[in-house]
Design a protein around this nucleic acid. Structure first.
Lengths: 201, 201, 201, 201
DNA sequence: GATGAATGAGTGTTCATTCAT
DNA sequence: GATGAATGAACACTCATTCAT
């Protein structure tokens, strides 16, 4: 009954290809990812991928878009909208050091895409866009919190930038020098350090 | 006098190949780097590279070793050994946010290698080693500083880990969301935040 | 009329490739046969051969299939279906010592493929199949002959096996120790010996 | 004390290389055998093999010599020199169908070398020599046996040729169509058939 | 006798892509 | 929308061999 896989349209196929491309990158790295492998994985012909994306570069850009879109979704899922200002500030900071945010993407995939950004202007542009958006989200949140009273921060934009730097360093590098057993304690210490850095600012 | 290129020995050729390999990665990314391109760049035959490294994996591992070795050298160049404890603590932190440390390697190259670490155990092992070494250097330095008086930090090891997280996030990601004109000010703010995080610890 | 070489389909190209592969093996031996040489011979690109066969092993297996198929065809061409039992028995034996059967394939090619059988299970399997089929053909023929009367053989299966052993030794090795001038006489003597061995069985 | 492997002379090294070359052929086939693999197997430098044999062809020829020499040795070990003529005739025939003779060399290796004979004149020449020698040994033996009485054979040379054909077919091909359990019975039947063929001659 | 440096041709295979169907 | 034929460049790597040491 169900004519699986045959004769689908772009709306279904294109994101499907992008997802599979991401999987291949995770398994084999950027240098090991190819249109052929994506096709084999999906049981379709490589030419069909070209048919949809024209060339590999377009596929990479589509992948970056896909990843950024997912990051936005996860942020919206995690953000806490109620409670007193002090609690909400801590919650905001905690998001970026949470398991959910950490596990949002695969580090191998992240680094692969980041390594592209230097040579592929469209990738670089999209990453800047993403960070701009994220900064804006944090700033907006901070301003809402501060307006409600008590806490003051001289420069919310700078505060947002410091948060981003801290969590990126934490997120991408901690597994190289933190041991499994110490992970939860380190997470808490990082949040405390971020709060100290923030309110000192 | 100097019969360049012909009949050299492993001691000269191997590091030369590694350096050229790194250049190719910077220019074309991990996915664009090939033994053939390195050979062309050097005016030698690809098989000579195989002669020295047996296969591409070994070459990659040698590159990681080379990069790590350079990081160690730069750290030793930058470390300040005299002055009162307070000044020296700030100098230590400042190293990791300095232009010299930031410019030590190319971010594209860094990400390329980091993206390998998930799939190549030898790369992962070496990176862990490097971070362990770096942590140890910082801890040693912190302990010396604290012993001389005044400043106290509950846990120097944790302090080192927080410094590393902060500077890694700063170093690798800041260019995505900090504008040129604001760079110097941001650098100072990050150092201040790091100090706050540290002494709060 | 005939736009040779361009845009053909698998039905035409695949056997064409197999035939050319066989020729290359005859000329240069298994150790000298390469996909590149086959392609050059056909005026096509090596990757087209990969396109059809995926890898060299598959090509080898296809070649073995091709050779075995040809052996079956030749047997069917040579088999005599009429005459009295005694004559027909002799005709059957004579087939395997005939020029046509001897010249069916090139010995160099035979040995090349036989040498593969130890390391390539699919080649071994196909050779066993071929011998099973041949044995069955001979047994069937012997039984028909015996049923019509006169001649008796205790065990037709064993008789078939002995015939095969004798003609294989004759076919593959005689040229190492029989001189040209003596060839025809030796052929007759071998047929006589086979008959003696058979009816003695 | 024992300076193993270092600084040996040609008398020791050359046969050692040939033996290792044979092993590589057995494991990887003619098409997979290379000087490099032999060298790695022996823990020496490939250049050293070239140093001794100048090129690969010479090594192959040396291997054929080695194999033929071993065949001669085994024949001499197996030949029975006493007993009555009838028993000795049967013993002679039985040699070539014996396990010892069958297992004298690896079939994969045999076929690999036989496949070379068509393209390498020196290999072909040596094989012919070997068969000539073998034929001569058998003829001599048959004549001794016949001289002692009883048994007559019209043409001992032809008889030798028939024996060779039969055992070669048996030796090289039987494993494709004889099952393990039937092997011993088949061996006896082949000997009987050979005797019948012989005394009928 | 033995090794290392170097070459250059050649291996099988992958790759992105184009074109016709 | 989807596949197959075809290409040509590139890939990592192997090979036999030469030469200098």
């Amino acid at each position: 009954m169900d004519t699986i896989k045959k004769r689908q349209n772009a709306g279904v196929r294109k994101p499907d290809i992008v997802r599979n491309f991401y999987q291949v990158i995770l398994e084999e790295g950027i240098e090991g990812a190819s249109i052929g492998k994506v096709a084999k994985r999906m049981g379709i012909h490589p030419s069909l991928i070209i048919h949809y994306f024209q060339n590999k570069e377009n596929l990479i850009v589509a992948l970056v878009d896909y990843i950024i879109r997912r990051a936005g979704e996860i942020y919206r899922e995690l953000i806490v909208q109620s409670g007193d200002p002090g609690t909400r500030l801590r919650s905001l900071v905690a998001i970026f050091f949470s398991e959910a945010w950490y596990g949002m993407s695969d580090l191998g995939g992240d680094f692969a895409i980041l390594s592209l950004s230097g040579r592929e202007p469209r990738v670089d542009a999209r990453l800047r866009e993403m960070y701009a958006l994220l900064k804006q989200l944090i700033v907006g949140e901070l301003e809402k919190i501060f307006k409600e009273g008590g806490i003051t921060v001289r420069d919310p934009k700078r505060a947002a930038e410091i948060i981003i730097s801290m969590y990126e360093g934490y997120r991408h590098f901690k597994h190289f020098y933190i041991e499994e057993g110490d992970a939860e304690k380190f997470r808490e210490d990082m949040i405390a350090s971020a709060m100290a850095a923030l309110t000192n600012n």
